[in-house]
Amino acid sequence: MFEAKMLQSSVLKKIIESLKDLFADANFDCSSSGITLQDMDSSHVALCYLKLRSDEEGFEDYRCDRNITLGVNLGLMSKILKCAGNDDVVTLRAEDEPNILTFIFDSKNSERVSKYDIKLMEIDSELLGIPDTDYSCVVKMPSHEFQRICSNLSQLGDSVTIDCHKEGVDFKVAGEQGSGAIKLKQTTSVDKEEDQVTVQLNEPVTQSFALKFLCAFTKATSLSDTVNLSLTQDTPVVVEYPIAQHGYLRFYLAPKIEE
């Protein structure tokens, strides 16, 4: 038996909304330690990794008697989650050898309980090992700032060059019709921590990435006030949205490399 009761259905809604356009079908791997999801986009350029820990406060109840994999069409899951109120508590339930995933939405005043079943899918996807590595540079910034930068620069070109150096971080685009550059300096005098831009730099990095994917990742903006960009030369960038009381959602994007 698997049963996970999430206090905020809005969190699950936001997660699925941010994934469903790039990642059509995905396996939710459930174990006693929590729920993980890893998936590659169809062009094998981007990877997402979601971790929701069972011992965090976002789950009111969590039970997973044996490890199970729930293969789900994320478009369908998004439709089901639209049937939940934002303040509803959502319970996910499945048997030990499941064909069906059940969603139960309880309204805050317990006056309305709705239940939806969806058929599970057999999804053949290869899990990749993602090593824990030290990155040359980690930028922490307001998530809405990152969203604005990606949106602004995508109007002029397909790829952004991210240049991390000791003064801050530069985002540059050069297209056929024009070019643009946004410089972010480290902030030291901002009151709120979530408004700060910080750059932890071991080594400078200059790397280009496809804006199409970065813009897609920023659909997760409402999950978190801040976003962390971790970069090392000639390796994928990690775009991480912490999810309060649950864990995190990370996107990995392969760079564009000079051939």
Binding site: M40, H44, V45, A46, L47, E126, L127, L128, G129, I130, P131, S159, S208, A210, T235, P236, Y252, L253, A254, P255, K256, I257, E258, E259
Partner: peptide, 14 residues
Amino acid sequence: KKKQVSISRFFTPA
């Protein structure tokens, strides 16, 4: 000219 590479180049099967 910069070329987009695949993500699987960087991670090995688990």
